[in-house]
């Protein structure tokens, strides 16, 4: 027997061994107990398969990677089908289909045939090239691109342009100001203190302006404009550093979660 056959067989035997170890033989509902054992065992094996990539690309990693692609594609298809087609579209399209799929019929909405028609046109891409009708999918693509443009243009102008500028410019540069004397006598560097509030607002206002100056390429970045642009780079560097640090923490907490699962739920080494 060659390695290509031996390794999968040995893996399946080890998997079944772990499954039996995890199976609760005293459970009342043996079917659910089997699923529970399968969830923990499969989760542990697949986690190890993914982590095996840290050594190098190998058949176990490839197996897990390909399984992930197949299962994910089907998962999103099912979720989309039941939540959007069955629950949103069908109750407005056909009483017969609604009844067949145990959905309440909510009355006809003929315009719902528009996305269905565009959706079916999109699927023409899957038909054999010999039929030469794949180009019809561009009608759907045109609708998607135009709708995105039409919806995003005004929405972005409001949410990301006007509101961001107004939130920046409405910040008080001298918050809680009751006079210079009070400011000096109560001066401290506590987190919620007046000076830090003031500093924060100045950093935001100056940071946004200098960041925008950096993105303005119609004027050469020299002289005072260049110096403001340089400050903009620093502001952006702080942003990138903060985002990076935050992302690292997110990934590390996921890693801790997987390791906890491996050592506690799967291997039972820690309680």
């Amino acid at each position: 027997m060659n390695r290509k056959v031996m390794i999968p067989i040995a893996s399946i035997i080890v998997f079944i061994g772990f499954l039996l170890l995890k199976f609760d033989f005293e459970a009342v509902d043996s079917s659910q107990a089997l699923w529970d054992a399968f969830i923990v065992t499969a989760g542990g094996f697949l986690t190890l398969m993914i982590f095996s990539f840290l050594y190098r690309d190998n058949p176990f990693y490839k197996f897990a990677e390909h399984l992930y692609v197949g299962v994910s594609a089907a998962y999103w298809m099912c979720v989309g089908f039941w939540s959007n087609i069955v629950q949103q579209a069908i109750p407005h399209l056909s009483p017969w289909l609604s009844e067949a799929l145990d959905q309440p019929f909510l009355g006809y909405k003929w315009d719902y045939w528009i996305p269905i028609a565009f959706g079916l046109l999109l699927l023409t891409r899957l038909l054999p090239d010999s039929l030469k009708i794949g180009w019809l999918s561009k009608w759907t693509l045109a609708f998607i691109v135009a709708s995105t443009a039409g919806l995003l243009m005004t929405a972005n102008l409001k949410a990301n342009f006007i509101s961001q500028i107004s939130s920046t410019m409405s910040l008080p540069l001298l918050p809680d100001w009751t006079g210079f004397g009070d400011f000096v006598s109560n001066f401290d560097l506590s987190y919620g203190g007046q000076f830090i509030k003031m500093l924060s607002n100045w950093v935001i206002v100056v940071g946004v302006i200098s960041g925008l100056v950096y993105f303005f390429f119609s004027k050469e970045h020299t002289g005072w404009f260049g110096r403001v642009s340089r400050l903009g780079i620093w502001v952006l560097m702080v942003t990138f550093g903060a985002s990076f640090g935050y992302t690292v923490m997110g990934r590390v907490s996921l890693l801790v979660g997987r390791l906890t699962f491996l050592f506690r739920d799967w291997a039972g080494i820690i309680s």
Binding site: M77, N84, Q88, Y112, P115, F118, L123, F143, S147
Partner: peptide, 9 residues
């Protein structure tokens, strides 16, 4: 809503 329906396709 059309978007959501087309996204399934």
């Amino acid at each position: 809503i059309y978007f959501q329906i087309i996204s399934v396709f």
